[in-house]
Design a protein around this nucleic acid. Structure first.
Length: 517
RNA sequence: CGCGGGGUAGAGCAGUUGGCAGCUCGGCGGGCCCAUAACCCGCAGGUCGCCGGUUCGAGUCCGGCCCCCGCAACCA
């Protein structure tokens, strides 16, 4: 039987700055989906990376007196370290300055020329000699370049243009019909609106830009951003090379995930380019929303950008993942109150999941102590408990929560995934109160055994459910139940009630999420 | 008349096909004692932006108005 495949991507991030909360948000969300699909037993390829060409990069490097390559090496490695710290499980990390990518982009551009999808034209724009780049109206202050206080010149240069107009009707049709799913629905509307407004052919090369991939058939030109960056999704898979096994296996992408500002390029330009060369189109393109911080748009100039690495320092990787994803519905914009992170950490994680884990394991240990003496050596929590007789009183409600959880995952509603987790947490807390194990310990051993079993088994389910969002906590919970490694077991099996064997030794863990003061 | 989103309890948000207005946090009161001073229960009563309309009945449909915000006119 062929395993189902799942190919998920984030955008490649532009290395003009270090990882920020937006890129972290996208990447964490993608990681959650990737982990979930792996749990389902699918063959997953999860790609992220960095976009490293362009004038801005060359300038930034010059300011620091290093070569552009040195500059991008530094920033790119910061992204890789950040994702490492955040437990991102990407299968590859593509860099647009890698020789593989560069070769395949050249191949692609040549192919565009061969099929007649590009033509020579003239680009006219406002050029600042000081910046050595074209400026947009938006960048100008009183009609002047803000950096050099000079009016930019209106100049023309040779460019190759992609014949977008030729492919627009087909792309529109595929989007409208849902062959390419654009999500959420409102973004789809917006994209369809763009067609009505009309779109122009776009440059795929530039003459004045120096830091980029040289156009193979015209050395005066360098490949311009979209024909470079977007290609990462297939060059990473070896498209156009001898070794294109991954490409044939994983393309088309199941989902391109991104923030909404680049939806146009992904929903329109990218499919059009793929059509031009006769390749399949991505199945789903999902654009999530933007953060505002305390009501204001996040920006470097305002100095209100949230550094994801600071969050990790404060809360840890798991909690950072959880907190970012639970701020607002995935796909909408949302405001983040910086002060709320700690409050929410305490309520959902310390008092919620952490406390539940702690109370359940404590009771197991207290009421059903293991007496084989083979405890963890040294350290605290060296005692252990045994799982008592099984019971299925919680099986049904847990099953329903699993259904909600999966539905949320399948529809990319990451925030609702978190709701499901919280619901299971709440179910367990209520169950404790309803059954009062400390009472049963005095007068009903038989029922006590069932109640504790149910709690331990529910905790196991929680541990599994936590895996996509908070892999570390998941691991700790499952280890404490003697179920550390479950990656080879399919989710559908893990979801069965009663997998936890009676008599299994459980070991209390240190606080999963220490309370913040 | 560029495109799109939104205005619901102190705050942040849910509200599918119209039918007693919900969730989380905070606040107040009670309970419990297994647990990370955690947990459970109850309460707190918001003209659902404004004005009309359709309907037995409208945050939920229609029309108009006011106010926020995002995207866009080839920034990566």
């Amino acid at each position: 039987m062929n395993k189902e495949k799942f190919y998920i991507t984030t955008p490649i991030y532009y290395v003009n700055g270090e990882p920020h909360i937006g890129s972290a948000y996208t990447t964490i969300a993608a990681d959650v989906l990737a982990r979930f699909h792996r749990m389902k037993g699918e063959e997953v390829f999860f790609l992220t990376g960095t976009d490293e060409h362009g004038t801005k990069i060359a300038q930034a490097a010059q300011e620091q007196n290093i070569t552009p390559q040195e500059f991008v090496d530094i920033i790119s490695s910061k992204y890789q370290m950040a994702w490492d710290v955040l437990d991102i499980s990407n299968d590859d990390f593509i860099r647009t300055t890698s020789s593989k990518h560069k070769d395949l982009v050249k191949f692609f551009v040549t192919k565009l020329k061969e099929v007649g999808a590009i033509y020579e034209g003239e680009y006219e724009g406002l050029y600042c000699v000081g910046c050595e780049k074209f400026l947009t109206e938006k960048e100008l202050v009183n009609g002047e370049c803000p950096d050099h206080k000079k009016r930019p010149e209106l100049i023309k240069e040779k460019n190759y243009f992609f014949n977008l107009k030729k492919y627009l009707p087909e792309v529109e049709k595929r989007i409208d019909s849902g062959e390419i799913k654009i999500l959420p629905e409102k973004i789809k509307k917006e994209v369809l609106g763009l067609f009505k407004q009309g779109l122009n052919d776009f440059s795929v090369t530039r003459e004045k830009v120096k830091w980029g991939i040289e156009v193979p058939f015209d050395s005066s030109q360098v490949v311009y951003v979209w024909a470079d960056a977007l290609l990462n999704y297939i060059t990473a898979l070896g498209y156009g090379s001898k070794d294109d096994l991954l490409f044939r296996k994983f393309w088309p992408a199941n989902i391109h995930l991104m923030a909404k500002e680049i939806i146009k390029f992904h929903a329109i330009f990218w499919p059009a380019m793929l059509l031009a060369v006769g390749e399949e189109l991505p199945k789903t393109i999902f654009a999530h929303g933007f953060f505002t911080v305390d009501g204001q748009k996040m920006s470097k100039s305002l100095g209100n950008a949230i550094d994801p690495m600071e969050l990790v320092k404060q809360f840890g990787s798991d909690a950072t993942r959880f907190l970012l994803l639970s701020q607002f519905p995935f796909g909408s914009d949302g405001d983040v109150k910086v002060g709320n992170f700690a409050i929410q950490y305490n309520s959902d994680l310390a008092n919620g999941i952490g406390n539940l884990t702690s109370r359940v394991l404590s009771m197991a240990e207290k009421y059903f102590p293991a007496n084989d003496g083979s405890h963890a050596k040294g350290g605290q929590g060296a005692s252990g408990g045994l799982v008592p007789e099984r019971d299925s009183e919680l099986a049904e409600p847990v099953k329903i929560i699993w259904q909600e959880f999966e539905k949320a995952m399948e529809s990319f509603e990451v925030d609702k995934v978190i709701e499901a987790i919280k619901k299971l947490n709440g179910l367990c807390d209520s169950y404790v109160e309803d059954n009062k194990p400390w009472q049963l310990a005095k007068d009903d051993q038989e029922k006590l055994a069932k109640v504790i079993y149910n709690l331990l088994e529910a905790l196991r389910h929680l541990g599994v459910m936590l895996y996509p969002v908070m892999p570390q906590a998941s691991q700790k919970i499952l280890e404490s139940l003697g179920k550390g490694d479950f990656t080879s077991i399919k989710l559908s099996d893990l979801q069965n009630w009663g997998r936890l064997q009676s008599g299994t030794k459980v070991v209390k863990v240190d606080a999963l999420f220490p309370r913040m003061q």
